[in-house]
C-alpha cells in the first residue's frame, strides 16, 4: 500500500484549435520492483503503478503499461492534439487497486 502518492501534471492553459501540445506528468510512488530484499533476506513484494492513461473529452490520448523497470516517481512526457476546449483526465492504476487521478482544463482560442 503506497501512501503520500501525489500526482502532478503540466498542461498549457490554452492552445489553438488542432494544436499539438506537450504534456508532462509525474507521480510520487516508490515503484517497489519486487527485486529488493529486506534486512532479513525476505523479498519485498512488488508494488508499482502498472498503468497510466490520458484522455481528452473522453477520447484516448495515450495508454501506457508500466513494468517494474520504470523508475521511482514515474515521469512521463507525451504529446496531445487539442481539437477543442475541454478537460484532460489523467489516471494512474496501482498494483494494490488504488486509482489516482488528476485533471486539467484547457481552453481553445
Amino acid at each position: 500500500m503506497a501512501d503520500n502518492v501525489t500526482p502532478r501534471v503540466r498542461v498549457p492553459r490554452e492552445a489553438a484549435a488542432g494544436e499539438t501540445i506537450t504534456i508532462k506528468t509525474l507521480i510520487s510512488h516508490p515503484m517497489e520492483s519486487g527485486q529488493r530484499k529486506d534486512g532479513d533476506g525476505n523479498v519485498i513484494p512488488r508494488s508499482i503503478i502498472n498503468r497510466f492513461t490520458c484522455e481528452f473529452n473522453s477520447e484516448m490520448v495515450i495508454d501506457v503499461t508500466f513494468e517494474p523497470a520504470i523508475s521511482t516517481n514515474p515521469f512521463l512526457e507525451f504529446e496531445a492534439v487539442v481539437p477543442e476546449s475541454g478537460t484532460f483526465v489523467f489516471t494512474w492504476y496501482d498494483d494494490d487497486s488504488s486509482v489516482y487521478t488528476d485533471s486539467k482544463d484547457i481552453a481553445v482560442n
Binding site: 484516448m60 495515450i62 495508454d63 501506457v64 504529446e79 496531445a80 492534439v81
Partner: peptide, 9 residues
C-alpha cells in the same frame, strides 16, 4: 506505450 486518436505524436 499505446497511442490513441488524440496523441499529437
Amino acid at each position: 506505450f499505446n497511442f490513441g486518436p488524440l496523441a499529437g505524436a
